[in-house]
Design a binder for these strands. Structure first.
Lengths: 205, 205
DNA sequence: TGTACATCAGTGAACGCGCGTTCACTGATGTAC
DNA sequence: TGTACATCAGTGAACGCGCGTTCACTGATGTAC
């Protein structure tokens, strides 16, 4: 009499369960293990069952990414609530972003992969557009009165490129000793960040 | 009487041909298409033939990455030879790096993937260590007398994280219109780079 | 110069694998009367 | 309250696919005598 014997024929909330199973799989097995079949297996359901909730594998992945952006947004919001000083907010947010991307790297990879091929901006109100807006607003805070929207956009991309790249750099095995020596991933992030400055309006000349 | 009819039983330089076939495949079909079988097919040879030159798929990939680093190093060197002014060298090199990563994105991905899991520094004299050294030396050029080796290392990582992230950002489909509006990938790279500055020795305070 | 033979670098068939997806199906649920 | 029936959400077997790798093999090459 296993657990699965007692599960009713109809699951009740399989859609949510599949997304959650995918997250678990990502954390335990990595992104290469994220097949539709594996997700179904993890959720204790037949390989065909997901097709009643997702058109295809891509749609499941999109839902997984969406949940990921929700989690990331929550992390960033929490950090920003605890950081009042405008001077500290960019750094604090960057560090939180990197921390998320490193701690949940396989999930982050899925999030990025689904974003990469998107040809529309994320829908207003979506978890993704929420994160984008949050980052842009923090960049905008530090901009002087002369900054145009394009200045802010470009500075935002610069900041994003940096933390995105830094998150990736942090997962290189060869850097492990350096990171340990500095006292862990967050300290490493902070140390590297010290060597780059976001400039929202470029200094004259 | 096809070309393959006239090919001799022994290829002569299959190792090099396989690496070159892999590069072609990457450019035409993308990194997901880079299977050992596909490479053999592209080279006009049976699926078992590569095993006489590479222990397994990983070893072929490593050779492909190695060739990639050679190409990247050549690009960087060429740019630096044409850029004497120390103030311009970081930017010029960064732009060349991003340009390489974008133009040859699938190859760049293979290069990064093989680097990620490496647990030894690239062997001195290897194409990879050559690129790393080149970048570090350019960063070191801009450092004042108070900079320690660790300062330079961290600034180097900061710069690398930025251009690596920027290269990735540039391939997001959603940014296509922005890039076109700015006048192409190089202009975009330059515009974004304007908003971030490498600081080798942090200003006091 | 000729020949036996070891070695090298190919072939092609086969292995087991996991994948995404489809199919006909069936058990469970809800609704109309 | 009971019943027929549509609909929903599962099952499990099967499809074709391409993969990495192994195997016994064979054709070509080079070397010793």
């Amino acid at each position: 009499m296993s657990l699965s014997d007692s599960r009713p024929y109809h699951h009740g909330d399989l859609r949510r369960a599949l997304i959650s199973a995918a997250h678990d799989l990502l954390e335990v097995e990595g992104p290469d293990a994220l097949s539709l079949r594996a997700v179904a297996r993890e959720a204790g359901v037949s390989p065909a069952a997901p097709y009643h909730h997702f058109k295809d594998k891509g749609e499941l992945l999109a839902a997984v990414a969406d949940q990921g952006f929700a989690d990331l947004g929550e992390d960033l919001r929490k950090i920003l609530e605890g950081t009042a000083s405008p001077a500290d907010r960019i750094g604090a947010m960057g560090a939180a972003y990197v921390s998320f991307a490193v701690r949940r790297r396989p999930l982050y990879r899925v999030m990025i992969a689904t974003s990469r091929t998107r040809d529309q901006p994320p829908a207003p109100g979506s978890t993704h557009s929420d994160v984008v807006g949050l980052m842009r607003s923090v960049i905008a805070e530090t901009s002087g009165p002369g900054a145009t929207d394009e200045d802010i956009d470009l500075a935002n991309m610069a900041a994003w490129a940096f933390i995105h790249g830094l998150a990736d750099l942090t997962t290189f095995r060869i850097l492990e000793p350096v990171i340990i020596r500095l006292g862990g991933g967050d300290a490493f992030t902070r140390a590297v960040m010290e060597h780059l400055r976001v400039i929202v309006v470029r200094p004259p000349g």
